[in-house]
Amino acid sequence: MIGFSFTRRKSAPRGTLHVLGSDRSVPIEAGETLLSAAVRGDVPFPQMCNVGECGSCKCRLVKGHIRLKRDISRHVPPEELSAGFLLACQSVAESDEVAVEVPGMRRGRSADLAPVRVDASIARVTPLAPTVLALEVGLAAEVRYVAGQYAQLTVPGVPGLGEPRCYSFAEAPDRASPRRALFHIRHVPGGAFTEWLFAADRTGARLRFSGPHGTFRYHEADRPLLCVAGGTGLSPIKAILEQAISDGLARDVTLVVGARTQQDLYALDAVASIGERWRGRFAFVPVLSQEPEGSSWTGRKGHVTDYLREVAVDHADCAAYVCGPPGMIDAALDVLRGGVPPKHLHCDRFLDRGSVALAAAAPA
């Protein structure tokens, strides 16, 4: 039996959490969330914000009863909630035994894809746009990942940079170079890590790497692809499309990229290369929200949701991949839900630490 409750108890019972596919069972302390118990028990559970904002820790309850700390409908629509899906960071055990199934975690899963923690260093920093850098990292050990996943980076010895920052891998895995990783980093004003990174040449600086994490990836489906990216949300989608080319995927694809101005568009050569190699129709639609009047821009203006509303009926049979800042994600999902079936709607929410802090302070 499984069950959900939004009611509060003075204290939740102690119990045991079983994460299917990990062959691990960990104790749950009174009042502790399932995610906290998993992390404390060293179970490689996908996670990022820990406040119910990113949706990374979505899993399915297969045994037991839990209490939800807050409304999770932004990440778990009613039909998925009815099927037992939940956010582990917002779920408190209400029974002695709780078992969950994590998407992508299966018995016999290759050890190559298990998260590892290794020393790293900055090998190269390359400007891509005024506010975006390509960060190439050298790793002390081999790391395997799936296109779409992310890693966590910390900077040992630098005050304020000991807490992990999450960045998606910006290219498809390269089996020939498993000791390197590439990330696209956007400068966040006031952000401790990006202020440090953009302030000087950090080549050679020591890092600590943890990964891979996350379940955002390509899901096999006989459907055209609709990929929607805001800002550096392009990085995991770029990686997924590159991997699809290597795997011989033949699907029509529409890549919609939102940016403020022309100078904020980046990796255009990489997008063009993907288009040239793609097996099927490849359409690239950049949309600028703050491009000055009278500029040389002849493409679309507005927001990506304007484009999605205009052609929504054409994409009802698509599998959608949406990645970027929370506001864009929510707006895009509002348009796509009801047209694209939930099982074909995949998103990766990019959060800076300010967004996480606001979410944590919001009333439950």
Rank of each mutant, 00 (worst) to 15 (best):
R117P: 00
A151E: 06
Y167A: 08
G104Y: 05
V188I: 15
P77V: 09
D71V: 01
R124F: 00
R165V: 06
M105T: 10
A141K: 06
K58L: 12
V92P: 03
R186L: 11
H65Q: 13
P164S: 03
R70E: 15
A123H: 07
P189F: 14
G160Y: 03
P178A: 12
A88T: 04
L61V: 07
R175P: 12
L153C: 02
A93G: 14
L61P: 02
V137K: 03
V143Q: 07
L86C: 15
R175Q: 15
I185C: 15
P156E: 08
L135G: 02
E101G: 06
Q90T: 11
R60N: 07
C89N: 13
E94L: 15
F183N: 12
D96Q: 14
P164G: 05
F183I: 11
L133Y: 02
E101F: 05
V62T: 15
R70A: 15
Y167S: 04
R60H: 10
R67M: 14
S168F: 05
L86E: 10
G64H: 06
L68D: 05
S121I: 00
D96A: 15
T154Y: 04
Q149F: 04
P127Q: 01
S91F: 13
L182E: 05
R144L: 00
S73Y: 01
L182P: 06
E80P: 10
V132T: 04
A120R: 03
P103Y: 10
R186M: 12
A176F: 02
E142R: 07
L139E: 03
R74M: 09
C57Q: 03
H75L: 12
T131D: 04
S121H: 11
H184P: 09
R107M: 02
A114V: 09
A88E: 05
V146I: 15
E142N: 06
S168H: 02
R67N: 09
F85Y: 15
S95H: 11
R144I: 00
R124E: 12
E97T: 12
V118T: 10
R67L: 11
C166K: 13
P164K: 02
A114N: 07
V158R: 11
S56I: 01
V125Y: 00
A111V: 07
V116W: 01
V143F: 01
E101N: 04
R180V: 14
R70G: 12
P115C: 04
G148L: 04
A114M: 00
F169A: 09
A114Q: 08
P189A: 15
S110L: 08
A151F: 14
V98D: 11
A93E: 13
A114P: 00
G160P: 08
H75P: 07
G162C: 09
R144C: 03
R106S: 10
D96Y: 13
L68C: 09
